[in-house]
Nucleic acid binder design. Structure first.
Lengths: 257, 257
DNA sequence: TCTCATTGGTCTAACATCAGTCCATTGATT
DNA sequence: AATCAATGGACTGATGTTAGACCAATGAGA
């Protein structure tokens, strides 16, 4: 007979003896999102869309890439072939060959943003709160801990890169800026989670026209975040980041209204 | 010839044209941590160790559990058989049968904590900062948004459960309290990440003796966190959570000194 | 012009995982 | 004592995935 030694609150809906559903759901959530092929395609597309491999850039050699992704070379090649057939990459043989990212992705048509937002549904709110938690937390850790000279330099370089970006490069460099903040916090789990959530929002972000007015606005906010981080002021960093992210969140949520 | 249209800062170490390594590493990280069998065992052990299924409690039926974990029933059964052979679960056939968690896990011997901490190495710092980001972010979101009556009730129930816990139940109920904070923030990604990081720290936590003095100290801090959250005061919630987590972090980091 | 290191292309045999089906057992309920 | 719904146990055939070895092409550099 089960002893059932424990708390019992308002949890009647639970299918088994333990906790409330959301926690159980979190622990007993699916072990894998799909098969190896699908997940590999997803990752490679993420690398392209996030600009980790820029247009014209080359992916690591198949053997290296397969090892990095923890997938057999055959599975990787199937994924690459899918991207090739979709026109996202171009493959060249021989030494100095490799898998190259083809030109910039076509600009999504207007109305695409709304459709995608509706597709995401509740996942949009999920991603937006998760993003805020991660990025706000990252800048606070960063501001509290302080940066090395090399880190300051990298951060400033990313900042000027966004500010001086051509319109077609803007999203990529904005992504780079935000993920750099996360990565400088020094936790690889944090970096991975930030990259993941950015990826989820990225299609939506890309579907929004890049307006000069918004860019200027973001530039000021980016500047404020960097200044607070470099000044070692966690509170200011938090406030500046919240303000910046709330702006984007409001914009995205607008497509659901 | 690659166009290489983009920023180029102090990133010479990168193996390919794109970004600095940590971001590329995050996007091109392994698609899967292990085979389905291993990951399933990991999850089931997590459910036991986190107390999602308490001692004497029953796991969902194999068919349901397999569906939840996104794994075939055969793979799930192999994992369950492994847990059974390790003595963690007991399987009974027939109606009202199922897979039951056997008695409480044996208390780890002293010195175990240090060994585990050394095993984790840099992953410990990773987990600790990630945890802080997630949980601090969660309480801020929660305090800022406010709670429904049912949520207040659940949170208070978890709090009193920890406070009145028998020593052998303390860790389980402490876990429940912390994860409830994360789950009330309303982002399933956040809940999953919090459960994941707690799982990573859990062996370490369990290897630390539960001292009355520490419990009393934690109780005060838990109280402060809940009060701030219920009062809708994000700043107070943040400060109280940081203080609480720093205490635990210092304790754990102590095993590495 | 030739070399050759590096890269993509291909194949095989072994193993992992899957969906689906049917059987065996149990014990609360009738 | 008999019923029977829910549960674990076992099997099959199909598909996904892997490691490793070997071939083919390329073009910068000697």
């Amino acid at each position: 007979m089960p002893t059932d030694a424990g708390e019992r609150a308002s949890e009647s809906a639970s299918a088994f003896e333990g906790w409330s559903d959301p926690t159980a759901d979190a622990v007993l959530r699916p072990v894998r999102a799909g098969n190896a092929f699908e997940e590999t395609v997803e990752r490679l597309m993420a690398a392209i869309k996030l600009g980790v491999v820029p247009p014209g850039g080359r992916f690591p050699a198949e053997r290296d890439l397969a090892a990095r992704l923890g997938v057999s070379r055959i599975t990787l090649r199937e994924a690459l072939r899918a991207l090739q057939q979709a026109g996202h990459v171009e493959v060249r043989r021989g030494r100095f060959g490799g898998t190259f990212v083809t030109g910039p992705l076509p600009a999504p048509e207007p109305g695409e943003a709304r459709r995608r937002a509706e597709d995401m549904g509740p996942a949009l709110d999920d991603a937006l709160t998760f993003r805020q938690v991660l990025e706000v937390g990252a800048v606070q850790v960063l501001a509290a801990r302080g940066l090395t000279d090399a880190q300051r330099e990298l951060l400033l370089a990313r900042l000027t890169a966004v500010d001086t970006a051509a319109p077609e490069d803007y999203r990529r460099l904005d992504t780079a800026f935000h993920l750099t903040l996360a990565e400088l916090a020094g936790s690889s789990s944090l970096t991975a989670a930030a990259a993941d959530v950015r990826m989820r929002l990225n299609d939506l972000l890309n579907a929004i026209p890049v307006l000069d007015r918004n860019i200027a606005h973001s530039a000021v906010q980016h500047q404020a975040i960097v200044e607070a981080v470099l000044a070692g002021d966690p509170d200011a960093a938090r406030l500046a980041t919240i303000e910046h992210l709330e702006g984007t969140a409001a914009l995205l949520r607008g497509f659901l209204a």
